[in-house]
Write a protein that binds this DNA or RNA. Structure first.
Lengths: 186, 186
DNA sequence: CCACAGGTATACTGATCTGTGAACTCCTGC
DNA sequence: GCAGGAGTTCACAGATCAGTATACCTGTGG
């Protein structure tokens, strides 16, 4: 991902507007004209920065991914014990859900983008694998038996709560409780 | 939902084409012209049948819901014991996933439709509540303690597997295993 | 001094979008 | 024999879509 090149001020405003609009209204439903307007930028500038709408979508997802990972890392670091740290992503998810009530941006994006070659697919896959690997790493550090299986189970619980959140409030508590029980049981 | 009115042959072909196209390419990305063309029907007929694209989307989701419920009921009926029946939706999901590899059509639809007043929202919400209630009913019949909590936990596992399925193959097995363990532990 | 990068402003293409109007055919039930 | 529902054909409206063209302004670094 060559998107690590330094962002110009206009580029940052474009991504910020894209985050707001894509997440809340859907990717296909939001046109580049609207994003340009909301970020106070010309459409020409948008295309000079990102080249195409597809690449802007990828940049939008990467930006979200970075924010989410930082939140999870902070939650992990705030834990007192290694066992408690294993379920830290669930407490991060609670905070995250307060301001992100439209489910998982990555799953939502893939729902709109069938083409596996689209740059968004790689970003979404990387995000899920990162979380699964983090669970396994934390489970290993807490000396849980069979950390690989535990990690996959925690991921399913996590994604289940995230995906159903807009439809069924209360699933987050249920999945967090179960996750803690699983980790404690070892 | 007044959609129970008898479907004309053209109406059925339209919904069939809509299912194929909406699920695989996304709702916003598929125009009514394309659906009319794929179902060998005039756009005029489509609007005479369904009134608007929004109502066609609702009809598409209802059709899927019916097929899904029938599959689950068959899986429940095929079980030998009440305990086994509690996790029957997970075996139904395995069958379902073989031909539906793009995740949950309802969650995908809500990802594209922000407006809670859209008829699709009610259909999606009804589907999830039906499954949660079914889990609770089956858990009660199998004399599991605290069937309400168990039902919510099973639902989260189910939705987690369904949502991550396009991205992480293998989560279905993991969630099924855990679901069976939870029910057995009782 | 000037080249260059970031950005603005505006107009444009060609395609596609949802939805409507009006006139027509065909079949079935009363 | 005829009323009415189902479906067709074709034209149309008005908006929006992604992306490009051209010309211009402005600050900064060599």
């Amino acid at each position: 991902m060559r998107e690590a090149r330094p962002m110009t001020p206009a580029g940052r405003r474009i991504v910020a507007a894209a985050e707001e609009l894509f997440y809340h209204r859907g990717i296909t439903a939001v046109g580049v004209d609207l994003i340009a307007e909301h970020s106070g930028v010309t459409k020409r500038t948008l295309y000079n920065r990102f080249g195409s709408k597809d690449h802007l979508v990828a940049a939008y997802l990467m930006e979200r991914d970075q924010r989410w990972r930082a939140l999870v890392r902070a939650a992990v670091d705030a834990c007192d014990s290694p066992v408690e740290a294993v379920t830290a992503p669930f407490t991060a998810l609670r905070t995250w859900s307060e301001t992100n009530t439209r489910g998982c941006a990555f799953i939502n994006a893939l729902a709109e983008i069938p083409d596996p070659a689209h740059p968004a697919h790689a970003v979404a896959a990387a995000q899920k694998h990162w979380l699964r690997d983090l669970f396994e790493e934390l489970a290993t550090a807490a000396h849980r038996p069979d950390p690989a299986t535990l990690a996959t189970r925690l991921l399913v619980l996590h994604e289940g709560a995230l995906a159903t959140q807009p439809l069924l409030p209360g699933t987050l508590s249920a999945s967090t409780d179960l996750a803690r029980a699983l980790v404690r049981a070892g």
